Amino acid sequence: MKIRSSVALWVGLQEEWQADSLMAFDYCLFVRPENRGSRTAYLLIKAFIEWAKEAGANWIQCGTATGLQTEKTVRFYEKMGFTHTGSFLEMAV
């Protein structure tokens, strides 16, 4: 039996090599197309922020690297209080 989830959020914690701090980060945030535009992503990120605080994180890093709706995703994170600090670049070889 195949079970399909309408949302997924995978996160982690890591000690930073360049500073004495603990960073929370996202591996993946996925919301099925039919659930996009709802409060689903907002509620997941709010829960992630609270989890990071409780875990003792000094900062949180989220991003997008799918190439899909990048500008919309960046605006979403900025509305959640994040600052756009960089970009990913790729090259096929």
Rank of each mutant, 00 (worst) to 15 (best):
G56S: 11
G67T: 06
V93A: 14
W10K: 04
W51A: 02
T73K: 07
T73D: 03
I49K: 12
V7K: 10
F88V: 07
V11H: 00
W59S: 14
L44G: 04
L13M: 11
G37P: 02
L89E: 13
R39L: 10
S21K: 13
R4Y: 03
I49D: 13
A47K: 05
R39E: 08
G56Q: 10
V31W: 00
A24W: 06
K46H: 08
I60S: 14
F30W: 10
A52S: 15
N35M: 11
T66Q: 00
R36E: 10
L68Q: 11
W10P: 00
E90K: 06
G56A: 12
C62K: 07
K46M: 10
V11T: 12
R32A: 15
S38D: 02
K53G: 15
L89R: 09
A52V: 02
L44D: 02
F82Y: 12
E50D: 15
D20C: 04
Q69N: 10
F30C: 04
G86H: 06
M91S: 12
W17Q: 09
A55Q: 15
K72S: 09
E50Y: 02
E90G: 12
Y77I: 12
S21D: 14
T83F: 14
F76Y: 04
L13I: 05
W59Q: 14
Y77A: 11
R75L: 07
G63V: 03
W59N: 15
R36V: 00
R4Q: 07
Q61A: 14
K46E: 14
E54W: 04
S21P: 00
E16V: 13
I3G: 06
W17S: 15
M1S: 14
A65N: 11
S21V: 09
Y42S: 14
T64G: 05
A52R: 05
E78S: 06
F88E: 09
K72G: 10
C62W: 11
L68Y: 10
Q14A: 15
L68K: 09
K79M: 11
Q18A: 13
V7L: 11
D20M: 01
G63H: 01
T83D: 15
G86Q: 07
K2Y: 03
T83A: 15
K2G: 01
G37H: 01
T85R: 08
I49S: 01
S6P: 03
A65E: 09
G81L: 06
Y42H: 14
T73C: 11
E90Q: 13
L44V: 03
L22T: 11
M91H: 10
K79P: 02
W10V: 04
G63W: 00
F25N: 00
E90W: 06
L22D: 01
L68F: 07
F25T: 01
R4I: 14
Q14N: 08
G63L: 03
A55D: 10
W17H: 13
R36M: 00
A57N: 04
S5E: 08
R75S: 10
F48S: 04
G81A: 03
Y42D: 13
A65W: 03
A92H: 05
Y77G: 12
E71A: 06
R75A: 11
K46W: 05
E34W: 01
M91K: 13
